[in-house]
């Protein structure tokens, strides 16, 4: 049995078209108040490139490929982890007024704001 599917020609174009449309529609509904976390959140999502980096590194057969593959994984992992860390921190700060405010789970109190900028 063989499950490998080739995303070639028009199939790839269809995937790109539908994904692009989905991205446009999803982001279209986001209020301006969330634009910064959203930019950071979408920045996190393209951190998936790390998966491609791992694929390239595992298939490396020369030192040159190993070195470049290593950097691909290193940079991709940085993109994903950093993007997640800052997005999560920002989003955790949005709290409604009233009693609900105290229900908020993680407040990241240690993310001190008054250090020098």
């Amino acid at each position: 049995m063989e499950f490998q599917i080739a995303f070639s020609g028009f199939v790839a174009v269809y995937i790109f078209m539908l994904a692009g449309f989905a991205g446009w529609v999803i982001i279209g509904g986001v209020p301006a108040i969330l634009h910064t976390p959203l930019m950071s959140g979408s920045n996190f999502v393209h951190g998936i490139v790390v998966v491609g980096g791992i694929f390239a590194l595992l298939n490396a057969s020369t030192v040159q490929e190993q070195v470049i593959g290593f950097f691909a994984v290193l940079l991709g992992a940085g993109n994903a982890a950093g993007g997640y860390a800052v997005t999560d921190r920002m989003l955790a700060m949005f709290q409604p007024s009233g009693p609900k405010a105290h229900k908020g789970k993680r407040r990241h109190a240690k993310s001190s704001h008054l250090k020098k900028s």
Partner: peptide, 12 residues
Amino acid sequence: ALMIAGMVVGAA
């Protein structure tokens, strides 16, 4: 997964 995630972010 890379194709979809990348293009979603590209459009967004």
